[in-house]
Design a protein around this nucleic acid. Structure first.
Lengths: 106, 106
DNA sequence: TTAATAGTTCATATTTTTGTGAACTATTAA
DNA sequence: TTAATAGTTCACAAAAATATGAACTATTAA
């Protein structure tokens, strides 16, 4: 019971990976920082939506913001996030291949 | 536009990490398989709830089931899932420490 | 000071996830 | 064949996440 809280916190951080737009942002920020407008231009959609997603990721400690003039530059707070994300992508790829293998047999 | 689908699939798989109970299950299955009843006994809660979470994780290719007699044994489909999960835990720990540091200064 | 750029915040509607209990299925043992 | 064990499935209610557009704030430039 006492350690259920750590699972809750842990899940909160992991939730940051659970949305297509947030995955795309993590991909974009893999090697460099980008400002809000750059990210918006690449990902598309509404600025309010992106802003809220970036804000949520920042609150969870996934992203770091740096203000420079009138621009907000976002970056990954740790390479570990990108690594975790890419491991999960590998799991997905393996699943898709497995799926394909099953289809091939039909 | 064409590659937005991969983000969607990727996010779907990552969502498996975004729930306290599912995190706990991943932790439990890190080194060994366990049957449904064992997992239920450790995690607590309703069997229907656990069953649905395990089923969702299995559909997403995160878990593998092996039926033996009347028991269903669950295991991680890949060590990569455990690794991704533990990387995100490290990110959380770093955040918590950072948070603590800020509190200490107040 | 006014306008433009760069974003954030907020309220609300919609969609998705989650939890619950009851009913159901499958395997084994008596 | 009946009962017990081990789970799954289903319908529904409640909670949480998401998308949207309008209004707002902050910085810079003219």
């Amino acid at each position: 019971m006492i350690n259920k809280n750590i699972y809750k916190l842990h899940a909160e951080v992991c939730k940051a990976l659970g949305h297509p737009l947030r995955i795309e942002v993590i991909d974009l920020l893999q090697d460099n920082e980008l400002c809000f407008t750059d990210i918006l231009e690449i990902t598309g959609g509404l600025k309010s939506n992106l802003s809220q997603h970036l804000s949520a990721m920042t609150k969870k400690g996934i992203l770091t913001v740096r203000r420079d003039g009138k621009c907000n530059y976002f970056s990954l707070s740790s390479k570990k996030v990108a690594k975790a994300c890419s491991l999960m992508r590998e799991v997905l790829i393996t699943n898709l291949k497995q799926h394909q293998k099953i289809l091939d047999k039909m």
